[in-house]
Structure formats: C-alpha cells, structure tokens
Nucleic acid binder design. Structure first.
Lengths: 155, 155
DNA sequence: CTGCCTGCAAACTCTTTGCACGAAT
DNA sequence: ATTCGTGCAAAGAGTTTGCAGGCAG
C-alpha cells in the first residue's frame, strides 16, 4: 500500500471512529508508515521531529501509536526487551508472523507462520479458552558475527 | 526435585561459579523454589519477608533472580506484560514449553511444545543464524468467564 | 583480612497522566 | 462554541546501581 493511500485509509479510520483528524496524528502516521523497518516510540519521535512539520510531543506520539495499531496499518511487535517495536503493515495482512531476533545486530526478521493460529486454537480449546492471539519468537546469534566479529547487518 | 535437594544443587552451583553462599541467597532460593505457581520479583520479596528469616532487601531479590535463573532451577517467563514472571523448574527439564495466558484470570498455563525447538532451528538456519531460544505464547479468554461473568480460577 | 555481598535510596527507562491552552468539528 | 487533542512536566511501574558498612572464604 502506498503512503498516500495509507494516509487516506488512516484518515477514514479516524473519522469512522469519531477521533479527530489532527495535523499531529497525520504527521506521526506518515513518519511511521514510511519506515522500512521496526522502530520504537522514541525513534519515531526523533524521526517526526527531524521531519519538522510543527512540533510534536512525546506524549502525542505515545498516544497515537495505539490508535495506529488499532487501525491495523501498524503492527506492534513485543520481543520482551522493555520497549515495544512497531512496523508498518503494508500488505494489510492479518496473517500470523513469527519473529527471529538476532541478538548480535538487534535486527528483527519476520517470517510467516500460519500454523501458529492452528496451534493457538488447539491448545486453547483443551483449556476451555478462546484464543485471542499468539506469538512465536526465536532469539539467535549471527553466524557471520561469530566468525568474523562483525555483523554484516551492522556495518 | 525436593526442596532440600534443590537447595543443595543451588549451593553447589554457587560454589562452582565462585559466587558466595550467603544466607540471603539461600533464603530467597527456598522461597522461590517452594512456589507452586508463577510469581513476580515483588511477590517473591513479599513472600521472603513474610517468612522472616532476617531482612532481605528488594535489591538482593532482584540480584538473586538472574543467578537462580542461570542455575536452571528457576525459569524466567516473559509474557510481555511489563513485569517478568518466574517459576521453579522442578523437573529439571530443559524441554520447550509454550505459555497460554488467560487474560481474564491472569493465569499462566504451560504446555509442552517440543516442535518449537525444531522450528527455531529450521528458521534460523535459513537466515544463517544459530538459535538460542524460542518462545511461543497464546493469549486467550476464559469461556466460563464470558458466560457467567466469573472466572472459576479466580473465585 | 580481603573482597564480594547487602541494604538503602536514588537513578533509570519506558510509558502514562493531570492540567491549562489550543485547535477541530 | 464545544469538546477533544496537545504539550509540558511530573508521576508511575519495574528494575538497576552507587556507596558505605558487613559477612563469607
């Protein structure tokens, strides 16, 4: 999905939700959706501030992230590292993805893992539960880093 | 594994690591290993303090938890909720377990999921990575709670 | 006796919140 | 004109850390 199209979708989402369409929200959305990789709230704040379109506060960024996540144009990724990561959901896909986190280069790879949904349902039904979501994450070392002392993803 | 046996194992672990065997560390270990369910650092602090064997500070509990985790007598469970959970690893098992978290009763169920290890290896090798660990977590609603408004695990 | 360990409190990180002002509808 | 959104700074939760005194080896 292109950025202008995504912005339009986001705008419609806001209107339909009865949430006001403000300059800050659109600015933050643009910056977030333009990111090629995962980013944190603080990184997004820096990016937004660097792109200077009027001031945007930390609080507003933090308040906007859940809205964008709810619109499904952004996906929240929690790898259990104290801070949350976000990433644009360009395909509009709701498909299940697993994360592979390289502890050497701090990079997060995402891999489709459709069986997660099946697993969640199977396991939940045994406990008389209704699954909401599931997440699968793998931590790993970079082989190249171990051999050469430098991670190719790092520089 | 019984508590005295576990304590002895922990003591040996400390000695072998060159870490001093203090009264606080053993007290904290005993309290931790006696827990039937998951617990947080703060809960453990309360438990230790209630069991009154001399004072134990918050700092020492926080400093001891990683040591116990490294000994593998305790397992760390991060469900991405801001605080970490811990649970005794009585079976000494290193087997892979998935967590099912009920968002109604906040209970954490654990289920053996050996395929996680296979999955981690498979996915990692494709990215030229060496897997360290993997985790699989399912969030779910309690069916009984939804129907009756009360979760049986809750009271 | 030496150096790691403890307890205390302050620091820290990430995120949330109360309040007065400002902007969207 | 309302009412919701914003920015600021302070609060909050969970965890970590610097330092002076204490105990294990």
């Amino acid at each position: 999905m292109s950025i202008p199209a995504a912005r339009e979708t986001f705008r419609k989402f806001l209107v339909q939700k009865g949430i006001r369409v403000t300059k800050q929200r659109l600015t933050i959305f643009d910056a977030a959706f333009a990111q090629p990789e995962h980013f944190t709230a603080e990184q997004l704040l820096d990016i937004v501030r660097a792109s200077v379109e009027g001031k945007v506060s930390r609080a507003t960024v933090y308040r906007t992230l859940p809205i964008m996540t709810e619109s499904a144009l952004l996906r929240e990724v929690d790898i259990g590292s104290g801070e949350k990561f976000y990433r644009p959901n360009r395909e509009g896909s709701r498909s299940q993805v697993a994360q592979v986190v390289c502890v050497d280069c701090d990079r997060i790879f995402e891999i489709s893992a459709p069986f997660m949904e099946w697993y969640g349902s199977t396991v939940s039904s045994k406990l008389n539960l209704t699954p909401i979501s599931q997440r699968l994450q793998v931590s790993a070392h970079c082989n190249v880093f171990r051999e050469t002392g430098t991670c190719p993803r790092r520089g």
